[in-house]
């Protein structure tokens, strides 16, 4: 698992690659918290190259979303592969975390 970041149109885009499971969920959380700044208002998690996410990984996304909520910021995810999308749909996470088809789609809707 690795995370690379870029900033565009006032949004922080964090791209996660590889697998997130119980064994590295903590690392995933630490890495995400390290890249998000206190001034970020919109964080877009690009999951295009994420091959697998377990419930422990979903929990990290939820924790980050809650932290961002406290600083009045938004977390959204985009570019989910069909298997990751299925995980979001089955768990109902797509009803809690905004899911977008692509970065462009997310930026257009979130006005970043």
């Amino acid at each position: 698992m690795s995370i690379s970041t870029e900033r565009a149109n006032g949004a922080l885009i964090a791209k996660a690659e590889g697998r997130v499971d119980g064994a590295n969920a903590r690392e995933f959380q630490d890495d995400l918290e390290a890249v998000i700044g206190p001034a970020d208002k919109l964080v877009l998690l690009d999951l295009e190259n994420l091959s697998y996410i377990s419930s422990a990984g979903l929990r990290v996304i939820l924790l980050v979303a809650r932290t961002l909520q406290k600083q009045k910021a938004t977390l959204a995810v985009c570019s989910l592969s069909s298997s990751i999308r299925e995980v979001f749909e089955i768990s109902g996470f797509d009803k809690i975390i905004p899911v977008h088809d692509s970065r462009e789609d997310a930026m257009a809707k979130l006005g970043g």
Binding site: S55, L58, L62, E89, I90, S91, G92, F93, I96
Partner: peptide
Amino acid sequence: PLTGGVALGLV
């Protein structure tokens, strides 16, 4: 079929 429910404890 799924019933559209969200995992428990979230919201």
